[in-house]
Design a protein around this nucleic acid. Structure first.
Length: 565
RNA sequence: GCGCCCGUAGCUCAGUGGAUAGAGCAUCGGUUUCCUAAACCGAGGGUCGGAGGUUCGAAUCCUCCCGGGCGCGCCA
């Protein structure tokens, strides 16, 4: 009827924007009418007439506007779908047919420095993407590309050697590391003789001098403890096994350059070895290149990134490489990816995806700093979030014990920071605003957490075990039941959208809609005091399903739920 | 100079080429003998930066312009 070709037709089916347009709408008649030379409305009507809709729709689908077909699903069908969803452990999220090996590169802090607000977004977004892709069935390999190698270690180690006290303190908190870095940097800038010794120390480090390496390991070890501390506070799944720092690739760099040369990709310019991926220009309008080996023989980040990509494809078997770094590195990754294609290290079937994100801004709309202009330490930021959340929770709910408050404050505070980050379109800068992210109204973590809490409260009040309602048949008695059900059915689509676009804010938007739908349901539809036993059971089942969806959705964002707040 | 990103309500932001562009905050006004009012309901508020173009249809795609941000060889 729509043509002879056997190819599948995208009918453009999607949830209707407004209730008066039914549950779902299809827009294919408009685009297809053109191709077939038939008026869209007539085409739509022909489709409606040709099918027996009685099992699918409550009433005959309507042709409306320029040629939309609006569907209102049959109650029996919707009930069946909802009941099925309620019994599904995966809540309607289909495991992907052909899992990939996805390598997600995120966080990437620097050794010998405290993690700061600049690491926040990569860590949060990367962790979320890893969770989502993993849940969908991909094999996810997390990679923490820490900055544990380079010339700055010369001055750090040299300072450690000369100031033996600095070594002792490395067993302590990160503050010692910070001080070590600052002291070394100050001396490096102020004392030319020290700078010379630091440069000599770099050579020793490169040469594998045992004393130098020993000091270096101490630095890395102390930093790792700091990273773990921050990740634990943040609830981020990154461990030591996930660390592949710059030092890991160091032994591979020479071969990268040699192989590039054998591909004829390397040109010499003023003593430096440069590759020129196609399609890039420098300020003079000439082809822009990436230096892969400096005139002094040293390597740069482009070399390391090429080596890392190679490792991830050849050794880890990655078929989707994901890099979560800030948007300023877009061109750098575009060049690295182009080079990987040109030399064939990244075959066509391997997708290379940079996941760029914008900056975190302060209230003045400039990069987020302390009042005195210093970078904000991540651990301080997290502690403040927990403190603020605790203060609010204590004020709202004075009868909570301090122990309950502690867990609550962490879930809310950390959740608020993560959600504020994830809920914005990631490419844009966003303004860091405590009041907004900790508000109970609006698109915030506490609002979502509260929807979950209200549901849990129902089961507590009723003395009921929620798990017992998983298999319960769902009956849609009133519009409130129906609207909540339609929203619950969209969860799978929302999760799938995140894996496709690598944009977590899509899941946030969905969960916010879901929480809003539940709050409305809660107002309109009595659960424990429903008019019949069947409706009560159905609403308990719907509520439990909503709670599971909220909890799973938030978990995919890396956010915890609480039982009461 | 070239390239990339971003301009949507007073503010912070959503918005798969589709119907009358949506939320929250702020403002104003309602709702509690009832499962958490940390909630819900309602009102006002828009030249979607501007101008062309493609299309039955454009905030969305294309071109140009304006404004802001970022990047463009020996840091990462």
């Amino acid at each position: 009827m729509l043509g002879h070709k056997e190819e599948p037709i995208d009918v453009g089916l999607r949830p209707s924007g407004q209730p008066r347009f039914g549950d779902y709408q299809a827009g294919f008649a408009m685009s297809m009418g053109k191709k077939l030379g038939r008026p869209p409305r007539a085409l739509a009507q022909a489709v409606v007439d040709a099918v027996d809709w009685s099992d699918l729709c409550e009433k005959l689908p309507e042709v409306a506007g320029p040629g939309f077909i609006n569907f209102t699903l049959a109650r029996a069908l919707l009930q069946k779908l909802a009941t099925h969803l309620g019994r599904d452990e995966r809540l309607g999220v289909e495991p992907i047919g052909t899992p990939r090996i996805v390598v997600v590169d995120y966080s990437s802090p620097n050794v010998a420095k405290a993690m700061h607000v600049g690491h926040l977004r990569s860590t949060i977004i990367g962790d979320c993407l890893a969770r989502v892709l993993g849940f969908l069935g991909d094999r996810v390999i997390r990679q923490n590309h820490i900055g544990d190698w380079g010339t700055q270690f010369g001055m750090l180690i040299q300072h450690m050697v000369e100031q033996e006290s600095g070594v002792q303190n490395l067993e302590g908190e990160v503050g010692d590391l910070e001080r070590l870095y600052q002291d070394a940097k100050r001396r490096f800038d102020a004392e030319p003789e020290f700078a010379d010794r630091a440069r000599a120390r770099v050579v020793q480090l490169q040469a594998g001098d045992e004393e130098t390496l020993g000091k270096w390991r101490k630095l890395v070890e102390a930093s790792q403890r700091h990273f773990e501390h921050v990740y634990h506070r943040l609830g981020v799944h990154l461990g030591r096994d996930d660390v592949r720092g710059e030092s890991f690739y160091n032994p591979l760099l020479a071969k990268v350059v040699v192989d590039l040369e054998s591909h004829g990709k390397v040109k010499l310019d003023q003593g430096a070895k440069v590759v020129y991926p196609q399609g890039f220009k420098n300020p003079e309008g000439l082809p822009a290149g990436m230096i892969v080996q400096k005139s002094d023989g040293g390597y740069l980040y482009a070399t390391t990134d090429l080596a890392a990509a190679r490792y991830r494809i050849e050794e880890l078997g990655g078929t989707r490489l994901v890099y979560v770094t800030d948007s300023r590195q877009m061109q750098h990754f575009a060049m690295v990816f182009q080079a990987l294609r040109e030399v064939g290290w990244a075959p066509e079937e391997v997708s290379l995806e940079h996941v760029p994100f914008g900056m975190v801004l302060g209230p003045d709309r400039k990069p987020f700093k302390t009042r005195s202009g210093d970078t904000i330490k991540l651990i301080d930021l997290l502690d403040e979030a927990i403190r603020r959340a605790g203060d609010i929770a204590r004020r709202k709910n004075p009868e909570l014990s301090e122990e309950q408050l502690g867990d609550l404050a962490k879930a809310i505070g950390i959740g608020a920071i993560k959600y504020a980050d994830l809920s914005n379109q990631r490419i844009k800068d966003y303004v860091f605003d405590w009041d907004q992210m900790l508000a109970f109204d609006g698109n915030t973590a506490p609002y979502l957490q509260n929807a979950y809490v209200r549901i849990r409260s129902i089961f507590r009040k009723g003395g009921l075990d929620a798990a017992e309602f998983m298999g319960q048949s769902i009956l849609l008695a009133e519009p409130g039941d129906r609207l909540l059900t339609l929203k619950l059915l969209e969860f799978g689509t929302a999760v799938e959208a995140v894996s496709r676009t690598l944009e977590p804010h899509r899941l946030c938007g969905y969960l916010y809609d879901l929480a809003t739908s539940y709050h409305r349901f809660y107002e309109q539809c009595p659960v424990l005091t429903a008019e019949t036993e069947d409706i009560r059971n159905s609403r308990l089942a719907l509520s439990h399903l909503a709670a599971r969806t909220l909890a799973l959705g938030l978990d995919l964002l890396g956010i915890d739920v609480v039982e009461r707040m």
